[in-house]
Design a protein around this nucleic acid. Structure first.
Lengths: 246, 246
DNA sequence: CTAAAGTATAACGTAACGTTAGAGTCAACC
DNA sequence: GGTTGACTCTAACGTTACGTTATACTTTAG
């Protein structure tokens, strides 16, 4: 699709699309030989994401960070969006309630405190922005995923198998102690594997382990290999880092 | 109240209040001898109005025009706001529905057309902006309403009765021709009456007649005195102007 | 084949504040 | 009563997300 088609479809200006291209927020997948921008179906999905975020008053730079973050997960983002929209609607409901009151106040039907008149107006901090930052703001995770993104399908598959192998091994060991030799060996494999993807410092590795228990998305996805695995890995990673530190 | 109190109360920045003062959108009623801004209760009510409009993405210049317009009616504005907020909420609901669909689509549960993906995103024209412009954008109407606003209750009532009398007369005549002597006499009364309030040029008077049929809010309120009265008056006004033009 | 509509880049303009910067003011505490 | 810290002022430049020309090339409809 060419610019104007897209613009008309989604109700934005051509200039806006140019702008998004210029700042690297959304560059079309293709161009004609004359240099015309050609937007793919994927580009449109991305655009939808962008507009959702924009609707929630995220600055474009942050939107760019988020959607380009390798750890960006479309489905998660959509669900977060949904929550934010619901949040926004409830603020709107507040405002409507406020205005109803104000109308009755203006008609002299009721009394109203000054504070009441501004209920629903304080948008100062959006709780979801924080969540979004935490969720997609981790550089280490980003790097790893970036690497995965740059790998071929086969490479990804191989990588995935290796990872699953390590997970499985650790899952078996998770009844025992995190500082056992086997556990530590497996963790070393894990560390080396991750380093193939993103060069972790020991500290970053420990931080990642912390995330395994702090961030329930990690916890959940890891615990699919065995209940309590995330905790076990986290502990083992901490031990590994502490014993290997000079 | 001093700036920061106000800012904190309503959840905006001090700079914003300074800005609103600078552009003449909202200047505090008073100042201390040191030059500190002091906001009155009235200022706060005005601020509430401004923020409501702002929430609906009206540019500040338009907000300024509106709230400073002599025909600005607080109650009407509030009711319009209410409608706009409801409108906005329904758009939000659309977006939420869209995102729900998108989520299910992303999960592979359903199919979705490209167009569907952007439902709820086209904010291009807000029907209420148009209404607001029409409502507060007409200088002639403004003048008249300003005059009415400056009249006492008794005067207003008297004026209303006179107007109703003319309406009633015209309603009786509306079966006949708009250029009949009686109709033209009644229209002259009408013209004179309006001129008591705002000094209409003949051209403006003709324009007003046009609005009676173009703007359905006029049409409706006039036709309450008799079906087709608006059209009849409009025609008669045109005739009046054309025959009285030098 | 030509006019109209669309597209490109480039660059300046704008709206609504944010962000210093420098200086005066006010209430409170030692 | 002096000083500190929270507020306040004006002034002026910075920023974001495009809008708006301006100029030139490309595509499409008649």
């Amino acid at each position: 699709m060419k610019v104007k088609e897209v613009a008309d479809l989604v109700g934005i200006s051509v200039r806006t699309l140019h702008h998004y291209d210029a700042i690297g927020l959304l560059s079309p997948d293709g161009t004609t030989e004359a240099g015309y921008r050609l937007y793919s179906e994927d580009n449109l999905e991305m655009l939808q994401q962008i507009l959702f975020f924009r609707e929630l008053d995220f600055p474009l730079t942050k939107i760019k960070e988020m959607i380009h973050s390798p750890s960006f997960n479309r489905l998660e983002a959509l669900e977060l969006h949904r929550n934010m929209l619901l949040e926004k609607r409830s603020r709107l409901d507040n405002m409507i309630a406020t205005i109803d009151k104000t109308i009755r106040h203006a008609r002299g039907e009721i009394q109203m405190t000054t504070k009441e008149k501004f209920e629903g107006f304080d948008f100062s901090r959006n709780p979801y922005e924080q969540e979004a930052r935490e969720r997609w703001g981790n550089e280490a995770v980003d790097k790893a995923n970036a690497k995965v993104g740059s790998m071929s399908k086969d490479e990804q598959e191989a990588m995935g198998k290796t990872m699953n192998g390590i997970y499985a091994k650790l899952a078996e060991l998770r009844g025992g102690s995190p500082d056992s030799a086997e556990a530590q060996a497996a963790i070393k494999e894990w560390y080396d594997l991750l380093n193939q993807m993103g060069s972790y410092s020991l500290e970053a590795f420990k931080g990642l382990g912390q995330m395994y228990v702090d961030d329930e998305r990690f916890t959940q996805s890891i615990d699919r290999f065995g209940d309590g695995l995330a905790k076990f890995m986290s502990d083992a990673m901490a031990v590994y880092v502490d014993t290997n530190r000079k």
